[in-house]
Write a protein that binds this DNA or RNA. Structure first.
Lengths: 125, 125
DNA sequence: GTTTAGTGCAACTACTTGGTTGCACTAACA
DNA sequence: TGTTAGTGCAACCAAGTAGTTGCACTAAAC
């Protein structure tokens, strides 16, 4: 599995070093995963039609299975999917818990400033 | 599984060009803008310390002004910032309204999940 | 006026991303 | 058993992204 926790490497070159490594990787990969329309579509599909395989998902898109698989892996790396093996098939399902962190960041940062967001927060907590 | 049927198909990658356009572009740039820790940091700074210039923002980071400026432009393209000129300075401020769309998509999506869980719960109890 | 601080623009590099193709491997089935 | 559908892995490529440098331009300060 190799995990690969290493940070994004940010190749800062010159001014670099010493400054707030930051790299809150979880939000990076989470927002990054959501930034692609194909991936959001995959999440929606898996939610509405239930768990299924990369092969099946690829049949209804203009993309190849490999492209779909890469997207599924990105989503899984973000914690939004999990997969389980069933015979020779591999089925993916949505695990939407990480979405709470995304909403959390948004509400925490913008909450105090925007009444609309603030109302939303009160609505959802 | 044959998948693709590959025509003459010069490896030019036919990217399908269809779909993915829609109104998803807004969410693409929005989530994409939030996917970078430097950009989230900039939003937080602008929110907590008020509007300021790219030059000032660059002074407290290991990045150059140009790098910061590019990030600000990405945020502005996502609708999260606006700028106004004051003499020879250009001041950026946060306009957090688009965050509502992000939260909206997440809540809608998670809502479908909740529905599923809810149905499941009703079915299994 | 001259100088200087702040900005704008363009070119360039290095790495990442989203997609492809090809082939090997394995579980299911005739 | 042999065949096949589904998956896994690696190489490859084009385009995008994140950063840099260098220089020109303009508004303010002297």
């Amino acid at each position: 599995m190799t995990q690969r926790v290493t940070q994004p490497s940010r190749r800062v070159a010159r001014k670099a070093s010493s400054g707030t490594a930051k790299t809150s990787g979880a939000l990076d990969t989470l927002f990054g995963a959501l930034a692609d329309p194909t991936r959001r579509m995959l999440v929606e599909r898996l939610l509405t039609k239930g768990p299924t395989t990369a092969t099946v998902l690829a049949e209804t898109t203009p993309l190849t299975r490999q492209a779909i698989l890469k997207h599924l892996q990105v989503l899984e790396a973000a914690g939004l999917l999990a997969h389980e093996r069933a015979g020779r098939e591999v089925r993916y399902r949505v695990t939407p818990q990480p979405l709470a962190s995304a909403v959390g960041w948004i509400l925490d940062t913008a909450g105090q400033w925007d009444d609309r967001i603030d109302r939303l927060r009160r609505l959802t907590t």
